[in-house]
């Protein structure tokens, strides 16, 4: 009897854990939606931070994340291609693969400190470029790992067929292998984009923040996430409301990109 009871107890507790997990998701999403939606006005989208809106912050955050992707996606994909197509099986490739995985889990604040020393301190001030580089450093390992894993799923026969047709190695990679892995890599890019667009720590002392609309990457650059951090700590109600509105919008953006990424995979299957 006893072991049947233990069995029920453990299974019950496991189910309870799942309920708790989902409970937190809904709790966070519901409070966030409630606070966010009641704090959003039309002016939230049309004004800049200095006038109590987030227009410049949204543009700034997206600009940095997109430019970081332009840097990280080619580099990460090329590295992934090397690991899987050229260096596969070699000791060097396996070392690099492991180092890249370690980089993926490196604390984001440390990356901020590193980029500060590299691109802020020597140039005399916060700048958008530093923020972009910090975000790209966060993104590269994720792209490497996705590319590596997705290329691994491409059947060897496809490559052999390419060789049989007399294709050179890089033509086979570009025109056959990458095409076959396109969906998986696209998903990986979307998911990593969703990850970096919500990052705060690497931006705190690289691009910092800007109250005004600017596209000048040589100076402090507006950031949605850094603004949320600042606004939430101000005592006045208007700042807090704006922080909630910004948090809600940010979360929706991140979750939507995530769901789109998953949807892309499912459609393919």
């Amino acid at each position: 009897m006893n072991r049947l009871f233990v069995n029920k107890l453990i299974l019950g507790l496991s189910t309870l854990s799942a309920v708790i997990g989902i409970g937190f998701l809904f709790w966070i999403l519901i409070t966030l939606s409630y606070k966010g939606i009641t704090s959003i006005h039309w002016s939230t989208f049309t004004n800049d931070l200095v006038e109590g809106g987030i227009r410049n912050l949204l543009v700034g955050q997206f600009t940095m994340a997109i430019l970081a992707s332009f840097l990280a996606v080619p580099l990460g994909m090329m590295a992934g291609i090397y690991l899987r197509e050229y260096g596969h099986g070699s000791k060097l490739a396996s070392v690099i693969r492991n180092l890249s995985d370690v980089m993926m889990s490196a604390p984001s604040i440390v990356i901020g400190v590193f980029v500060f020393a590299l691109l802020v301190d020597p140039f005399g001030g916060y700048n958008g470029w530093a923020g972009i580089v910090a975000l790209a450093i966060m993104m590269i390992p994720i792209i490497i790992s996705t590319t590596d894993n997705m290329l691994a799923l491409v059947p060897k026969e496809l490559r052999e067929a390419g060789i049989a047709l007399g294709g050179s190695k890089h033509k086979i990679i570009l025109q056959i292998v990458i095409k076959a892995a396109k969906v998986g890599i696209t998903t990986g890019i979307l998911l990593s984009f969703a990850r970096i667009i919500g990052e705060t720590a690497p931006l705190l002392f690289t691009s910092a923040n800007n109250q005004f609309f600017t596209m000048d990457l040589n100076g402090q650059f507006p950031s949605l996430t850094v603004s949320i951090y600042n606004l939430a700590t101000y005592p006045d109600e208007a700042s807090r409301e704006l922080a909630w509105a910004a948090s809600f919008i940010l979360t929706m953006i991140v979750l939507c990109i995530n769901l789109i990424g998953r949807f892309v995979i499912r459609n393919k299957k």
């Binding site: 705060t200 949320i228 939430a232 979360t251």
Partner: peptide, 10 residues
């Protein structure tokens, strides 16, 4: 996927 700053706010 929820950004950590949202966890902080909430």
């Amino acid at each position: 996927a929820i950004p950590s700053i949202i966890y902080g706010m909430w």
